[in-house]
Design a protein around this nucleic acid. Sequence first.
DNA 1: ATTAGCAATCAACTGCTTCGACTGCTATTA
DNA 2: TAATAGCAGTCGAAGCAGTTGATTGCTAAT
Lengths: 372, 372
Amino acid sequence: MRQLDPQIAQDRKRRVLQWVVQNYIHTSRPIASSIIAEEAGLDLSSATIRSILSELEQEGYLVQPHTSAGRVPTDRGYRFFVDYLENVQRLASGEKEQIEKQYCNRLEELDRVLAHTSRLLSTVSHSAGLVLSPRSEAQGLKRLELIGLGGNRVLAIIVTKAGQVRHWPLQLSFVPNEARLRALNRFLNEHLEGKSIREVRSLLAEQLEQAEREMRELQDFAHTLLGELESAVEPDELFLDGATSVVARAEEFEDTREIHSLVRVLEERKVLADMLQEQFRKQLDAAKAGGAPTVRVMIGGENTLPELKHLSLVTTTYCAGDRLVGLLGILGTKRMEYSRMMSLVEYMGRIVSRSLEAWDVEPEGKPKRIPR
Amino acid sequence: MRQLDPQIAQDRKRRVLQWVVQNYIHTSRPIASSIIAEEAGLDLSSATIRSILSELEQEGYLVQPHTSAGRVPTDRGYRFFVDYLENVQRLASGEKEQIEKQYCNRLEELDRVLAHTSRLLSTVSHSAGLVLSPRSEAQGLKRLELIGLGGNRVLAIIVTKAGQVRHWPLQLSFVPNEARLRALNRFLNEHLEGKSIREVRSLLAEQLEQAEREMRELQDFAHTLLGELESAVEPDELFLDGATSVVARAEEFEDTREIHSLVRVLEERKVLADMLQEQFRKQLDAAKAGGAPTVRVMIGGENTLPELKHLSLVTTTYCAGDRLVGLLGILGTKRMEYSRMMSLVEYMGRIVSRSLEAWDVEPEGKPKRIPR
DNA sequence: ATTAGCAATCAACTGCTTCGACTGCTATTA
DNA sequence: TAATAGCAGTCGAAGCAGTTGATTGCTAAT
């Protein structure tokens, strides 16, 4: 025979690797050379496959659990598989419809949309669904309103442009009557609309020193609200559903200690939320540079959190109006159907973004009721 | 020897059973007669213990996993143990302080208190913590307010007497100016304050037909809000934390199918919430008859949900103001420290009730800041 | 009524063997 | 010289026998 084209050799190797990963994902059993020879349709004998496999192992794409076993992908193997995915598996159009139905174009609050989304991600993927909500601190305000609750109590309500609603009960140091409250409200909205909570904070702290005489109470109020804002800048809110199913499927963990540290991470949320925030920042930068929002996959040990080393994370960004504001995705076994999951996540990102557009668009027509 | 007093015999039996359950809870190993003879301090030989054990087994309090093994409590055994708990294990005062610290007497919204409580229950108990929030439907309103969001959009906000805040964005069929909104607000609050959401619903539906001419818009509004109220009567809200740790500790489950059905119940929440609602109703009735709120324990198969047959549920009611409004508790292995858990749950019930009192009391003084 | 003693049971462990699922190597082939 | 067939080697999984030790139930003695 003539010299084998090295290009063809590479190509063959790639095909084998892909076949191994694909099938390992489905069967969760180590893949043997004979099976590949028989079923992969490469027209090669098992012996040839074996030599290819051993090369792939040397290059770090595969490992053997033990000598007399088939091959299993390493993180690197999965990585290759994901990077060179061909025939991307789209969501079935039935599924799309199912999902779409959940997002009838009804006016909904951001938080409700997000909570719902994380559930949906979880149920469709059979993994954990997660959504990182926008940092409320940075969002522009639409309204800041005070509602009297009797006595010196008021409920401070903030509605952001993206449709997030936050509220804190306050105890003022004076008892405002209705007229006063109204005046306060007007004043606040005139001066604060469009500002971010962060800005509001500094404005309240500084500028209001010079408020008109008759607005003296404002200072008291400002002081109270400031305190609340400070403590109430909630840790970035994370919607997480389906965590239990991830734990339930975690047989493959070597150690029970590993399971428990995973549980801790999933329960405390703080660490997870920080990690996702970091991830969001990265994808934000990438999007600025590259244009369209992309789906990112972190496989096993690629995750910054060691507790997630047996899991993979698939994420994308979503926007409210025209700004990227948050991250959503799924967290599941390394043995997930990457193609489908990536499609799912991408699709959900688009859907969520679209359903959050509504808040910045001018209103029209009657509200639509959803059918049960 | 003289005839053994049957009273003494019963007493001895009880002591043995208690010792078995207690020690099984701690060691999770079947308990052998010899150990009891040596360590329980009953001054009986292992042979005597054995005959006692076999009686207890015949009566259904204990079982043997296999012939040559020690005894393990049945649900009935646990039940006995719980019903005749002596030397109730109080919470360490250090722990109480820890908990107390979390509930500084600050004005907090109901939902935040409850969410926090379920977390706390979970971390202290190392089980799942759960809190069923009051049915917002039945609560009395404190305020119903509309905030204009521009165009025909308003945010409808309901504050209940217990301190729950609910809000829905609405699209009206007309564009209200500020004065109109104010008039609407005044009208609504005058007519609806103190009513429950359920009542509001019927009021809106009927009485407002006869609203003054100039309040014609009200009808439109009412119609819109009605729609929302209908669909937004949220399924009873359930705060649930620590579910993953329950799943992680579920080794003792016979079947993986069992684990998966448990996971489903924990994820979907609906079934769980309904069960807890039912449980709440029962405890409510009991409280009406008996006076003080009590802690209830459901052990394994006693639970109405078959998925929980390997778990135990410890619950109590809490009140907002002077009415019992919700349920809280923990869900964990049958092998839990019942005494401690019951103390914990009872204590948390009291603490939550106390910290929800604030909303009905007349306000006083300056708000307190919590230290970080 | 209690106990000591003893036979019986059975999971858990050990060691041994077989089986078969793989691989890696090597000589052969086209 | 790339691909293959064939074969020896490795090793887990499964099955089996034998041992150990924990624990019981029974019975006869106290």
